[in-house]
Design a protein around this nucleic acid. Structure first.
Lengths: 114, 114
DNA sequence: GGAACTGTAAGATATTCATCGAACACTCGA
DNA sequence: TCGAGTGTTCGATGAATATCTTACAGTTCC
């Protein structure tokens, strides 16, 4: 077996979707969920690459949480990177906003009715 | 029984939702459906009050169609009025855009990926 | 090597919801 | 008054999906 360079993850890298290739319905479905909306908002309030998946305050187990992040990746909303034992996240603000102008702003606005 | 003035519908008027009172998740869920998205787009391409519910080219029966219009009303996206035997529709562009700026534009944009 | 921690995968369950068919209500014109 | 047309409601069905439990795979540190 070929040796791996030091510090390189042996884990399968998370599959990412280019926001440009995301259908409108995919993005809307991803975003039309209370847990994922909370994840997005919480992520938006933190600096890039500072939040691991398990650090979010949502009322679901870690399996469901993993699923939600997978959906967010598939919508081009979140980028993930392995950092030691944890997987840290980043909200793809610019890219997503370029593909779906205004949508992210809409989600992040606090509007009282929710 | 009290007589009704001529020309007044005896039918229960459709229940409408003020867009200002619609939660973000409600709007997103309403819009994250292929049939409803088609309805919105088709409606956007027609003048106000010119399209009856049955006049839309969607692959569902009339019961499902009635349900979809009910969801759209509940999201403050569509206004309906009885006109004789048919119920005609109007897209609430300004009101909905004031509540969710940019969302309608997003839905109506033709963007190739869909 | 082993323990603790983090996240994913697989299988089962439950809930939501889109759809249909049938019955009903209303409107209009013959 | 009857019939055709339009839309809603109700009940049932099926599909999609959110969730949990359990098991597993990496990573880090002892």
């Amino acid at each position: 077996m070929a040796k791996q360079a030091a510090g390189v993850s042996h884990r399968a890298a998370p599959v990412h979707m280019d926001p440009e290739d995301v259908a409108v319905l995919t993005a809307l479905s991803a975003v039309a969920d209370p847990v994922r909306l909370k994840l997005i908002r919480e992520l938006a309030g933190s600096a890039d690459w500072t939040r691991s998946c398990g650090s979010f305050d949502v009322p679901v187990g870690k399996a469901a949480l993993s699923h939600h992040f997978s959906v967010l990746r598939g919508a081009g909303l979140v980028e993930q990177r392995d950092e030691g034992p944890r997987r840290v996240n980043r909200l793809r603000r610019e890219e997503f906003d370029a593909r779906f102008p205004g949508l992210l702003d809409l989600l992040l606005r606090a509007d009282g009715v929710d």
